[in-house]
């Protein structure tokens, strides 16, 4: 049977997770390898965020296992269907995050803290997509960022841009 671990969120909720699922986190993997993971593993992540993290990890785990079991026959069709499924799942996952930026950024921090490279780059891409095509003022509004430039500084940067990054 699969080895289970208990993860404890910062608000003291316990999550029972298979070792294979949670080992995607380099941070936890190291803890397990070092033998530091006896009993509950306390994490600096809220239960709401941790649930999301685990949702992602389980989906990823599911995907890798299925790929391993694939035999070559008819793989192409199967792969295509599977890719569609994963896309659909990812789209839904992204839509939820886009709608709730608090969760999105909590998740980003958690993926960084737990060292989940795949999730991290997925989320970075998500934020990049949100930023793409927007003007600085729109970006500031979207993320509540304060404009701390003086008008002169802005002018100087814009002037630099006239020279840089020519196609």
């Amino acid at each position: 049977m699969a080895i289970m671990y208990a993860l404890k969120s910062s608000d003291n909720e316990i999550f029972e997770v298979e070792q294979k699922v949670i080992e995607q986190s380099e941070t936890i993997k190291k803890m397990i390898e070092d033998g530091a993971a006896t009993g509950e593993i306390p994490l600096q992540v809220s239960s709401k965020t941790l649930a999301k993290v685990l949702e992602w990890c389980k989906q990823r785990q599911h995907k890798t296992v299925e790929n391993e079991n694939d035999d070559n026959k008819g793989k192409r069709k199967k792969e295509r269907d599977e890719d569609d499924d994963i896309k659909e799942w990812e789209n839904k996952f992204s839509d939820e995050l886009k709608a709730d930026k608090d969760v999105l950024f909590d998740l980003l921090l958690a993926s960084n803290y737990l060292d989940l490279p795949a999730l991290l780059s997925f989320l970075c891409q998500l934020v990049a997509d949100m930023v793409a095509g927007k003007m600085p003022e729109e970006i500031r509004r979207m993320f509540n960022i304060e404009n701390d430039f003086t008008p002169e500084e802005e002018k100087a940067i814009t002037a630099e841009h006239g020279w840089a990054f020519q196609p």
């Binding site: 970075c124 793409a132 927007k134 970006i139 500031r140 701390d148 990054f165």
Partner: peptide, 15 residues
């Protein structure tokens, strides 16, 4: 993962 045009705009967001 942003294009250079987007990077330009991003660098004008804040210091």
């Amino acid at each position: 993962s942003l294009s250079s045009g987007d990077r330009k705009r991003c660098s004008l967001v804040c210091r």
